[in-house]
């Protein structure tokens, strides 16, 4: 029985890896090679496509841009939501319940509903076409979910610790930053992982907000190449592979943390 299941698992796993493997194999080929045999290994592990895509995408710069945006966004989300989530959980008033519900319901707003008005607001606040501004926008889009998760996590922390700290003379802010915030580390890791992945893989928002190609994220740079490459699949595939390399590297290193974070995010949120 276990053997049978193993065989099934292997088959499903092959199916799962198939698109990635196909993309990888064919990214080394020339157009003619791809045309003659799409399944075969390339004749030579030719890096021409990669070199070209790497240059055309402005790879290093795009990568750094993406990192800056994600770093900015995550700092905002973590700090703002931890404070809000904690206070909304600990202080039970009608106002706090109302605010909490507002944050939770905001999770349901479809992005397309606010796309153009959001851009107008971003323009007004000088957040558009700026990497830092993108961080602020992501904070705004991400706090709803994060507040919800912090709120849920705070519930599980015993109140005694905080009480003890305030008896010791800690102010509200002191209690939060010295006592509560460190205790939130597990959920903070979770929220960071979830949100960084989301920002890293987001497409439509940067597409609208960033106009200067020097500020493009990896996905935008790749997307730009689709138009330029036309039907040159090997070149397109090389750009796709280049785009997924950083996440796959991070995944290889931090796999356990990422999966744990995702699971905690869903189960404890």
């Amino acid at each position: 029985m276990r053997r049978l299941i193993l065989v099934l698992l292997v088959l499903v796993a092959l199916f799962w890896l198939f698109p990635l493997l196909m993309a990888l194999l064919n990214s080394f080929k020339t157009r003619a090679e791809l045309f003659t045999n799409i399944i075969a290994f390339p004749d030579a592990w030719n890096l021409d496509n990669y070199v070209r895509s790497f240059k055309r995408m402005n790879y290093v710069r795009s990568l750094i841009n993406t990192i800056i945006i994600a770093a900015g966004g995550i700092s905002g989300i973590i700090l703002f939501s931890a404070m809000a989530g904690w206070v909304l959980c600990r202080v039970k008033t009608r106002l706090s319940l109302f605010l909490f519900s507002a944050f939770v319901f905001s999770m349901l707003i479809p992005f397309h509903a606010i796309m153009i008005p959001l851009y107008q607001v971003a323009r007004l606040l000088r957040l558009s076409n700026s990497l830092g501004g993108m961080g602020v926008i992501y904070s705004g889009l991400g706090v709803g979910m994060a507040v919800f998760m912090y709120h849920g996590f705070v519930k599980t922390i015993p109140l005694e610790l905080e009480d003890a700290a305030s008896i010791d003379g800690c102010s509200g802010a002191g209690v939060f930053f010295r006592v509560v915030f460190p205790l939130l580390l597990p959920i903070t890791a979770t929220i960071s992982i979830m949100n960084v992945l989301w920002m890293w893989n987001d497409f439509l928002l940067p597409l609208i907000m960033l106009r200067n190609s020097r500020k493009y994220t990896l996905l935008l740079s790749t997307n730009m190449l689709f138009g330029q490459y036309g039907s040159d699949w090997p070149a397109i595939l090389s750009a796709l592979i280049l785009t997924v390399i950083p996440v796959l590297l991070i995944y290889a290193v931090l796999q356990k943390q990422i999966i744990k974070g995702i699971v905690d995010g869903a189960l404890k949120g």
């Binding site: 905002g76 700090l79 703002f80 939501s81 404070m83 809000a84 605010l99 507002a102 944050f103 905001s106 707003i109 606010i114 959001l118 607001v121 606040l125 602020v136 926008i137 904070s139 705004g140 889009l141 706090v143 709803g144 507040v147």
Partner: peptide
């Protein structure tokens, strides 16, 4: 802080 960005960016 959360409220501020939330209002500006979503509400």
């Amino acid at each position: 802080p959360a409220l501020l960005v939330f209002i500006a960016i979503k509400l």
